[in-house]
Write a protein that binds this DNA or RNA. Structure first.
Length: 309
RNA sequence: GGACGGUUACCCAAGUGGACAACGGGGACUGACUGUAAAUCAGUUGGCAGAGGCCUUCGGAGGUUCGAAUCCUUCACCGUCCA
């Protein structure tokens, strides 16, 4: 392919704790790359220890994007993320650098690699609350039946028990006057892209994660959460449901011991790893998986990348 | 030594003669996902079969009954109390 014409995109995926951040830095150093984070929790300045965000030192090694770009008061959503990320990919290509999209938020990655067209309607919380209230009154089954009348297709792919998605679909329909299902599309990626993944044997990955969580506590996770609570972010943390923060918060509220909180974090992180695997499947033909236990993993990645770009 | 109470599937636990392969929860597995996504939600979870269905399970052994996880006898183990 004529390299100057098509915009390039290297994508690095893998479960939490797989070493994406570190690998992305190595790749960027070797390939004159810039990293675009695809991690929904790295966006927030206030979240640090519990998210295993790259350290300030690491962030200076190569250009990083979409880390610490907003605050908990002003949460980003898929639409904002997607728009900014597309723009960054373009800019980095224009600079003659290689954009490296690295992260574990499957939805964000797919929205870019599959060129999702998402409903233009930004979240409208008042409307959502109103719909939720309505649902409480008439019953959420009835709410879903209402959706089925307005947009049968959407009602088919949204489970009637999934309140959040039912409400969002209705929100979009009411605000735009158009069917939700007509406003979501996907197509071929506009990028010349290569997706690589870091694969670990589960047990080894779990061990790494456990060790990392112990290290988070040693590094002051409890203090970080306490500071957030003191700054009035308890509700925001609860609403977002961030692993590590939710559990410590429960401990700070006296609902469980510190040790229990730690165990819950370990367990919830494991569950999260498995749910991430729904987006990044071992048998996905689009993902080129590399074995993390191979000492030459990075060299193999570079061989493939250089062959493609 | 005696008196009660208990032993149910990976774990906890309901079930005390028939609708029981056995409620529920946890865990695990699989999946969905289009502006909260580290969110939200679903299916499966004794074995075999595409289904009807068939086979093996409720601590062990034996018995009663047309029929037992459920009743009886006995053995084993655990718990509390009395010696």
């Amino acid at each position: 392919m004529n390299g100057s014409a098509a915009r390039k995109l290297l994508v690095l995926v893998g479960p939490t704790g797989s070493g994406k951040s570190e690998t992305a830095i190595r790749l960027a150093q070797a390939l004159d790359g810039e990293i675009i984070s695809a991690d929904s929790r790295y966006l927030y300045r206030e979240l640090n220890i519990g998210t295993a965000k790259p350290t300030p030192d690491e962030l200076t090694l190569v250009p990083h994007h979409l880390i610490n770009v907003t605050t908990l008061d002003n949460p980003w959503s898929l639409g904002v993320y997607q728009k900014v990320a597309h723009h960054l990919i373009q800019q980095i290509n224009l600079r003659g650098h290689l954009p490296i999209l690295a992260g574990g938020t499957g939805q964000y990655v797919r929205a870019l690699t599959e060129q999702w067209e998402i409903p233009a309607q930004a979240p409208e919380h008042q409307l959502r609350d109103a719909i939720a209230l309505w649902g409480q009154r008439i019953g959420f089954d009835a709410l879903h039946q209402r959706l089925a009348r307005l947009d049968p297709e959407a009602a088919q792919f949204i489970d009637y028990r999934n309140k959040r998605r039912t409400i969002r679909a209705l929100e979009v329909i009411f605000s735009t006057g158009q069917r939700f299902s007509d406003q979501r599309k996907k197509s071929i990626s506009p990028y010349q892209q290569l997706i690589i993944g870091i694969a670990w044997p589960r047990e080894l990955l779990y061990e790494r994660i456990d060790a990392r969580i112990d290290a988070m506590f040693a590094a002051g996770l409890v203090e970080e959460v306490q500071e957030l609570v003191d700054s009035g972010y308890a509700e925001a943390l609860k609403r977002m449901g961030i692993i590590g923060y939710s559990e410590v918060l429960q401990h700070l509220e006296g609902k469980c011991s510190l040790e229990e909180a730690k165990e819950m974090i370990k367990h919830n992180t494991r569950v999260f790893v498995r749910r991430q695997a729904n987006w990044f499947k071992a048998n996905d033909p689009k993902i080129h998986w590399f074995n993390a236990t191979d000492p030459a993993m990075l060299a193999h990645m570079l061989d493939l990348i250089k062959a493609v770009f």
